[in-house]
Amino acid sequence: MDFQLTDEQRALKTGVREMLARRFDATALRAAVDGGGLDRGLWRALGDAGFFALRLSEEAGGVGLGLPEAVLLFEEAGRALLPGPLIATQLAAGLVEGAAEGATVVTAPDGGLVEWLAEADVVRGDATGAEPIRSADPLTPLHRLPGGGAGGSPERALLTAAEQLGSAGRSTELAVQYAREREQFGQPIGAFQAVKHLCAQMLVRTEVARAAVHAAAVTGDPVEIAGAKLLADEAAVRCARDCLQVYGGMGFTWEAEVHLHLKRAWLRRERWPTPARGRELQAAALEEAM
């Protein structure tokens, strides 16, 4: 047993982080927030970098990697707040023409919502009756489906959990950085236990979620995936909330990055399985074990 990242996995994670820092920097993030629409050039660049073809076999022109590597990729996407229907497009690679290369934008309904419906080239699944709503997340245009929406796939849930995990880690990082720099009463606010303990709990939530998400990626077990999403949803939402609190007044501004993580985390929480559904699935697993 060696439940740690391999050197290759570490290199992949670093590579993706550097690529996203180049292709989707703070200026690009701001432009996207201000309603830039989907950046097709960026989509293409992601395709060229193998983002969508990651799990496609090498014979089919893909990178031939597995779920654990996909999880690391989506962690980085979540961390960087990368916009677009990333998961739906990666899952369409090899099935929808142009998806693997980043030439086609693919979306799919999930949990009563459809992301990027107007911008997508292809919709996988039934989006009949979808009505546009004013999205609370400035980085994700949304349509609302009549009714609650159907179930989802474990793979999609796992990759969503990975995005949540990346976001939770970023919120923790932001809060800690701010707590080290921001001074009040003549010292960094991070020297106060009240702030320190908020930050410590953020790390605990993130690391517990990381163990759950990575293990679920290795086993691929649907119950373990549902549990991982439950913990990752909680970590992303609670860490963003606590980060906002550590930021104080700045946390309530449009300018700080914090609200973008919170809103996206809320959105991903609505994807299948929602926390309520996840708890039911876990309870059902307990019944199985009885």
Binding site: M1, D2, F3, A211, H214, L231, Q282, A283, A285
Partner: peptide, 23 residues
Amino acid sequence: RHQLGALNAEFTALWRLIQWNVS
């Protein structure tokens, strides 16, 4: 039921965290 379900996810994750720390 939800409380017990959440605990199931929790203790599964704690087991995985042990494996992570041991590794």
